[in-house]
C-alpha cells in the first residue's frame, strides 16, 4: 500500500486531530468555541481552519489542486497575521501536521519504501511552509501600509483643504517636455 492511500484512509482522524492541535494554539475557551460553533459566519476562524486543513490534505493525497490549497493557506495566514501570535507561531500549523503524521503512521512508516515516500511528502509540506511564511510577511507589511495610508490620507486632506498643496493640471506646459529627463532640466 502506498503512503497516500494510507493517509487517505486516515484522513478523517488526521483532520480531526490536526484541527484540535491548531485550536489548542488559542487561549482557554477559544478551542471549544472554534470546534463546536459550526456556523461559518458565527465562527469564521474555525471555518477557515477547517477549509484550509482539508485543502492541504487533499493536495497531499492527490485529490485537490495546489492552487486551492495555496488560496486557503494564504487566507488562514492572513487571519493568523492579525492574531496574537509570534511569527513562528503564526505559521507553525503545518509543522503540527508533520508531527501528527509521524505519530499516527508510526507503524506504517516502518514498512519498506514508506519512509522515502514520507520524505517526499514532507518536502511538499515544507514548500507550503515557505509559501505560508511569504503570506505572513505580506500581510504584516499590509498592516503597516494601511497604518501609513490612513495617516497620509488624513494629513493630505487637511493640507489640501487649507490650500497648501499644489497640483499640476493635465494641460500644464511642464508636461509637454519630458521633465523626467535630467538633460532637459537646465
Amino acid at each position: 500500500m502506498k503512503l497516500i492511500n494510507i493517509l487517505s484512509e486516515k484522513k478523517e482522524i488526521v483532520l480531526k486531530k490536526w484541527f484540535d492541535k491548531i485550536a489548542a494554539s488559542y487561549p482557554v475557551n477559544a478551542p471549544s468555541f472554534l470546534k463546536n460553533q459550526k456556523n461559518q459566519f458565527a465562527n469564521p476562524v474555525g471555518y477557515t481552519i477547517e477549509e484550509t486543513i482539508e485543502a492541504v490534505l487533499d493536495v497531499l493525497i492527490n485529490e485537490g489542486t495546489d492552487k486551492k490549497a495555496q488560496e486557503f493557506l494564504d487566507r488562514f495566514v492572513q487571519v493568523r497575521a492579525v492574531q496574537d501570535f509570534t511569527p513562528s507561531r503564526a505559521v507553525d500549523f503545518l509543522f503540527m501536521l508533520k508531527q501528527l503524521m509521524k505519530d499516527e503512521l508510526k507503524d506504517e512508516l516502518q514498512e519498506k519504501g514508506m519512509y522515502e515516500e514520507f520524505l517526499l511528502m514532507e518536502s511538499r509540506i515544507d514548500r507550503m511552509v515557505l509559501a505560508s511564511f511569504e503570506s505572513y510577511l505580506k500581510y504584516r507589511e499590509k498592516i503597516y501600509e494601511l497604518r501609513v495610508n490612513e495617516f497620509k490620507n488624513m494629513a493630505f486632506r487637511l493640507l489640501e483643504r487649507a490650500n497648501l498643496t499644489f497640483e499640476f493640471k493635465d494641460d500644464d506646459p511642464a508636461f509637454e517636455k519630458d521633465v523626467s529627463d535630467s538633460d532637459n532640466v537646465k
Partner: peptide, 10 residues
C-alpha cells in the same frame, strides 16, 4: 473574541 480568541474579550 470571535476574531482573536482572547477569553477576556468574551
Amino acid at each position: 473574541f470571535i476574531g482573536g480568541g482572547d477569553p477576556k474579550n468574551m
